[in-house]
Design a protein around this nucleic acid. Structure first.
Lengths: 243, 243
DNA sequence: CGTGCGCTTGATTGAGCTCAACGCGCGTGG
DNA sequence: CCACGCGCGTTGAGCTCAATCAAGCGCACG
């Protein structure tokens, strides 16, 4: 009975070692024993249905979340009600890093499809840093990576034409799927055109027009949300070109 | 003789406790003893002359830097040579956080005026985290704050009109100077109009035109780089207004 | 088999960019 | 001392790219 109970609890818990994302996610580089220690502090998996919030702006910050399955978008809102999508997250990526500074979530996180996350109580994680320096180091890397990512979005939003923005968007998705073992040329968009436009600082109409233009130019093939990137090189050239 | 030597070394070193920025900077919240431990690992002050680089994109990452005196700008460059300024840093703010993930600097840091920084060897800092949990916590807060800051710049670049961008820029400076005990209405710009435009995703001409318009509307007074914010409320209203 | 959301397409508009000229303050050198 | 050049900033005229306004399509779902 006691044993069964233990098994039940275990089966509810996450197992980093068994997760296909552990080479990208928080436990990257840990040995088996260390990974177990991390498993121990991680709460249950949590399912988040399509179009529902994992957390909302202004809520108390208790946990970081690692995306295990599915996709999310994070966005801020003004008092004026204007939204700005600040990122799309896929498996192996962390959610909630922006909340550490104030202990309040600074953005909303909403699932783009039925998804699953690992709940990581931040207080416990900080304690674990003291015992597993490798975990601390990788956590700092992940935070730093988020800073770098946002800087490149700033470059995108500040300096690029609509065409370049869209090309950069596809290339970014391509690279991230590739790192996860998926095709880097054949991808399924989980977000609407509106989401893409909002993220890139464009209107939905502009996105739509650009997509058809890219299609005509044989840069991509697209049907609904299924995209084929026909030439990564030409997409890259679009961005590099001194406009 | 030995004593003199010690004094000399000490005088070359930084002293967080004596620094006017210690309530904002890395040592925030530490007690005297902990602050001394931090002092011990901090390298010498380093002077950086106006228009010279503290570090350049692609250089090896060894140290974080805390701005002690003066102002910096950080910017990325494309292969195409396009620059994008990602931030302006003032005393008490950290430089180099984006380099942790790759051990290479992801951007250039250039002094806008003759400046001074504290050199913080990151390896030693990480060791110290294990001994001073409060330091670790505050460091995480500062990284998280940087993420939040960049997200709000994304909102600015993605959603705002030129007018709103400039208003937001002034209000941001105002708040940061205020936190440092300076006037929140009377400020000296350390950056050129071109820098401002680049940061906000505008041309220098647009910035110039907006400045004269703000002046005509009695929102600000500006002569050269001396700015008076005549109504913080009206500036805020500009941003909040649903365009 | 409507009904609605997500998306596309077209026509027009306008905010901000580009190009161009000029002004001002300041340091340098004759 | 003035002349000159230069970096920084302002101003004007015209243009362009993406936004806005408007209509309609097509797939999914009740």
């Amino acid at each position: 009975m006691k044993i069964n109970k233990t098994i039940d609890i275990q089966s509810l818990k996450t197992h980093c070692a068994a997760c296909s994302m552990h080479h990208l996610c928080l436990p990257m580089g840990l040995n088996a024993q260390e990974m177990e220690r991390l498993d121990d502090i991680i709460g249950k998996r949590r399912k988040v249905a399509r179009n529902t919030a994992l957390y909302r702006m202004g809520e108390d910050f208790k946990n970081l979340y690692a995306v295990r399955l599915g996709h999310f978008k994070t966005f801020q809102t003004n008092r004026g009600g204007t939204e700005q999508i600040t990122g799309f997250q896929m498996p192996g990526e962390l959610l909630g890093l922006d909340a550490i500074s104030t202990d309040l979530h600074q953005c909303h996180a909403v699932a783009l499809e039925d998804s699953e996350v690992c709940e990581i109580p931040f207080v416990l994680l900080q304690n674990l840093f003291l015992e597993i320096p490798g975990l601390q180091r990788h956590f700092h890397r992940m935070m730093s990576q988020e800073i770098t990512r946002e800087q490149s979005v700033m470059l995108l939003l500040g300096n690029m034409s609509a065409e370049q923005k869209l090309a950069a968007f596809f290339l970014n998705l391509s690279a991230r799927y590739n790192a996860r073992g998926y095709s880097d040329t054949n991808l399924h968009l989980r977000m609407t055109r509106e989401d893409i436009g909002n993220y890139l600082g464009l209107t939905i109409e502009s996105v739509s027009r650009l997509l058809t233009r890219f299609k005509q130019q044989r840069l991509i093939d697209i049907k609904q949300r299924e995209v084929d990137l026909l030439s990564l090189d030409r997409l890259k050239a679009l961005i590099t070109t001194p406009l």
